[in-house]
Amino acid sequence: MQVKRGLAEMMKGGVIMDVVNSDQAKIAEDAGACAVMALERVPADIRRDGGVARMSDPQMIEDIKAAVTIPVMAKARIGHFVEAQILQALGVDYIDESEVLTPADETHHIDKWAFTVPFVCGATNLGEALRRISEGACMIRSKGEAGTGNIVEAVRHLRSIIGDIRKITQADNAELFQWAKTLQAPLPLVQEIAETGWLQVPLFCAGGIATPADAALAMQLGAQAVFVGSGIFKSDDPSPRAKAIVEATTHFRDADILAKVSRGLGAPMTGIGMDEINQTQRFAERGW
C-alpha cells in the first residue's frame, strides 16, 4: 500500500502536464514537470471534436515513455477496467480514471484495489473523493472543468472538499454518522478524516489551470500539486509558460516570484465561460 500511495507523495509540489507526443513530453520534462499525462488529444480538443473519447494508442504511450525519465500517466475511461489492465501491462506509472474520456460504465467505477499500478480519480466534493478512495484510488484531484482554461470549477471543488474536511474535524461522534450519510461515503473513512484532519491520500488540483497565478491559487487553497491539461500546449508559447507554472507551484506563497515568472508569457489558452457550456457537455458531471 505504501508503494502504491507513496508515488503521489513524490509528486507533491509538482506539475503534471498533459502531452500528446514525445516532443511535448520532452518540453514538459525540460520545464520541470514531475510527471506527464500521455493522451491523444488534450481536453480542449476532445471538447471541440465531440464523439467518444477513449484510452490512447499504446504505441503513442510507449513513445512518450521512451522519451522521458519522469513518471508517465495515462487515462482510462470511467469503469473501463480492461483499458486499465492494458495500461498496467504497458507499465504506465499511474492511471487516471478520467471523466475527460467518455464513461464506459454509468454506475460503477473501476475496482482499483485489483491493480498494482496506482490510480488517480477526479472528485467534485468530499463524498465523491471518499467513494473513489474506498475503491482504491491513491490520489484525488479536483475535476474542475477540463479543457476550458477556466479555474472557477476547480476552485469550487477544492473549496468544497477542503471546507467539508475542516467541518468534519469539528464534528462530534454522533454527527459523523450524519456526515457519512450526507456524503454517501463509508463511515470509517469519515471517522479517519475527523481524527487526522486530512484525506487518506494526497489531493491535487486539475481542470482549468492556464496561468502561473492559477497554479498558485490552487496551492494556496490547499491543493498539494497541480495538473495542467490544455493550459500549456494550447497557449501561444508552451515552453516558457510550462517553466513559469512549475516555478509558481513551488513558490506559491511568494508574490514577488509569482510576479516575476508571470511576465511576458504570451497569450494563455482562450478560455471558455461556464455559461457557454451546457450541462450535458460538462465533464465534471461524469462520475458516480
Binding site: 509540489g13 509538482g14 525540460d30 520541470g32 513518471p71 516555478e247
Partner: peptide, 14 residues
Amino acid sequence: GGESTTMARLLETS
C-alpha cells in the same frame, strides 16, 4: 524524494 530533474531545475531557477 520527488523528481530529481524537477528539483535540479528549480535549484537553478531559485
